[in-house]
Every structure is written in C-alpha cells, then in structure tokens.
C-alpha cells in the first residue's frame, strides 16, 4: 500500500497513490508526496504592506506578494476562490519562480519584504520555507498572511524564519468554522499563540459577516481571548464583508456593526483596533493608546499622516507603540 498521511495541517489527509490532499496541490505520486506548486506561483504582485493588512510592520513599504493554487480551507465567502479552490494543473497562469529567482525579483523591485499570501501559504509550506530562509540571508523580511490552520511542529519550525504574520481569526465559534470554512477553531487558536510565543510580529483579522459572526457576545469573547492570550497590544482588524463566491445572499457588513465590534474590542482592553475595507473610516488610522494623538493616518492603503518618532513613540506623550517600524527594529536573527 503506497498511501501516505500528510502531517502539515490538522486535516491529516490520508492520500492514496495518485490522489491529492484536500488542499489539491500536495499529490501522492508513487508513494511520495509532492509539493506540486513549489516555485510555481500563480499570483505575483507588489502590494502596500497595509493591504495584508499589517499596520504596525514597516508601514508604507512595498511587499513582494506571492501565492500558489490550493488551500486547506474552503470558505464559502472566499475572495480568492479562483486561486484557492483549484489545483495547480487547473491554473491558466503559472510563473516559474524558484526561491532564488523570487528573492532576486523582490530585490530588483525595491521590496524589503516578501508576503506569502492570497490563498493560504500553509499549503505551499516548502516553497515558503526555502524562500524565507533565502530571504533572511539576503536581508529581506518574511510576512505570512494565513488562516493559521496548521499543525504545531511545522509551524514552530517555520516561525524561526517569519518576521510578521496577519492571521485570520474567522470567528470565536467552532460551529462557524465547521459550517463556513470547513475547519475547526482550536488549531487556529493554538497556532496564534505559537506565533506569539515564537516572537513573530502578529496582527489578527476578523471578517465580520452579517448574521453569521457579528453577535456582540461572540465579538466580545474573541477580543477577550486576544487580550488574554496574545496581549492587549496585538492589533485587531475588523474587516468588512462583501458578498462573493458562494455567499452572495448576505449584504455587505453595515459600518455600524463594525463600529460596534471596534467598541467591544476596545472595551475588552485592546489598544489597537482597526476597521478595514471601509474607505476613509477613522478606524483605519493608528492612535496613541495613552493620549489619543493621531500617529498614522490612513485612507485605504495610503498613508496620509505619519507622526510616530523614529523609534516608534508618540510625539506628544512619548508612549512606545508596539510594532516593527524600521528594518533596524527587526531583532537579532530576524534582522
């Protein structure tokens, strides 16, 4: 019998010869599991760091962003489903970009960091790992934008190479994860705690979907958990839902719902709570948690004001704002 068991994510797919994992791209050929999209991204873009969103990590810098086909979640509201819900052999566009070429391309474009993003980089783990190792040697930072549905051992190993992560916490509700994402909550919570323990700069995003995860009590539980397990200084982004893919029956999230969620999180003690996908909302910007001074003004992905001091402090009260504000702030072997 030449079936294999994949140990990368909590699904633990048992894959017979000639089959693929649930992610579609890890394929068993001849009893050996192949990472078929290694060095073969289907999306390559240069984005502002604010798009990830990472608001406390090298703000205003361009980040070389890549993704391959495949995903280990199957969110009914996926915004990248043409990429994530397909196998590599189904993609019309595949770039040949092995790790050395990727690093060369990022540097040639003047990027100081690489983001593994769009679908879920967990499923192209080997490509991320080798690229991140090389990026680190070349002085580039590594950003991981993920739903964090990954097992502990591979995550801990990868964290040594990661500088920043934005992790989706889709709801503080296991039933939601099962029904909407085809996953479970506990491994995600464990992964977030691990990233924090391993010293990765972490920001958390919660996409607020009307009627499904917008209950104030659920938002409150989520915010309290973030404060208790990740710390009050962890940025939390409440993002606006737009109807798409298999969830076109619900309206966009009302701005009042996002405002309410933001207040709940602030009341729970979180210092940096943002509202995303609402152009011009005051909650896009960063304020001093002590005296309320506007520190970084944003409209969409653009920075309109920047008042932080060079070492990341409020110019009015000298409060240190957590984050990685300059490449020099990357500590030790993360530099």
């Amino acid at each position: 019998m030449s079936a294999v068991t994949c140990e990368l994510c909590p699904r633990g797919c048992v894959i017979p010869e000639g089959g693929a994992g649930d992610c579609r791209i890890r394929v068993n050929l001849g009893g050996r599991l192949r990472a078929t999209t290694y060095g073969r991204p289907s999306a390559v873009h240069i984005d502002p760091m604010e798009k990830k969103p990472l608001y406390h990590f090298l703000p205003g810098t361009p980040v070389f962003s890549i993704a391959t086909a495949g995903c280990n979640l199957h969110c009914l509201n996926c915004q990248n489903w043409q990429l994530s819900q397909r196998g590599g052999e189904e993609m019309e566009q595949v770039y040949r970009l092995d790790p050395p070429e990727l690093i060369r391309a990022a540097k040639a474009e003047g990027c100081r960091s690489i983001a593994y993003t769009y679908s879920d980089p967990v499923v192209f783990y080997e490509y991320v790992y080798d690229s991140a190792e090389l990026a680190r040697q070349e002085g580039l930072a590594n950003c991981f934008v993920t739903a964090a549905y990954i097992n502990q051992h591979p995550l801990r190993q990868l964290c040594r190479l990661l500088d920043a992560a934005n992790a989706d916490l889709k709801a503080f509700d296991d039933g939601f994860y099962r029904q909407v994402n085809g996953a479970t909550l506990k491994p995600v919570l464990d992964a977030l705690v691990t990233m924090r323990e391993e010293g990765v700069w972490l920001e958390v995003t919660n996409l607020v979907i009307p009627t499904l995860n917008d209950d104030p009590a659920v938002i409150r539980r989520l915010a309290r958990w973030v404060r208790a397990e990740l710390g009050a200084q962890t940025p939390l982004h409440f993002s606006r839902f737009q109807p798409q893919y298999r969830m076109r029956n619900l309206p966009p999230t009302p701005v009042e719902t996002l405002d309410r969620a933001r207040r709940e999180a602030q009341d729970a003690g979180l210092e940096h709570v943002y509202v995303g996908n609402v152009l011009g909302h005051a909650g896009n910007s960063t304020y001093c948690p002590r005296d309320g001074t506007l520190l970084i003004g944003r409209v969409g992905f653009m920075i309109t004001d920047y008042a932080l001091t060079a070492d990341g402090r409020c110019p009015s009260c000298n409060e240190r704002v957590p984050g990685v504000w300059r490449s020099a702030d990357l500590s030790g072997d993360r530099r």
């Binding site: 019998m1 030449s2 079936a3 294999v4 068991t5 994949c6 140990e7 990368l8 699904r11 797919c13 048992v14 894959i15 017979p16 000639g18 089959g19 693929a20 994992g21 649930d22 992610c23 579609r24 890890r26 394929v27 050929l29 009893g31 050996r32 599991l33 192949r34 990472a35 078929t36 999209t37 290694y38 060095g39 073969r40 196998g87 590599g88 052999e89 595949v94 040949r96 783990y125 080997e126 790992y129 097992n151 051992h153 591979p154």
Partner: peptide, 30 residues
Amino acid sequence: GWRVIDRQAVERRIESGELSDREASWYHPL
C-alpha cells in the same frame, strides 16, 4: 480529506516544468 485529481494532467505539467516534482516535507507512509 483526499481528492481525486487528473493525474495525467499533473504529470504532464510536471514534465513540462509548469508544476514541480519537489518532494513535500511533513508526511509519512500510511
């Protein structure tokens, strides 16, 4: 989870270099 895929399409793409034959980490024989 596991999925039935078009194995021949995958192998063709690997032969042409559009997909990779790189062995994955984090797995073991059943």
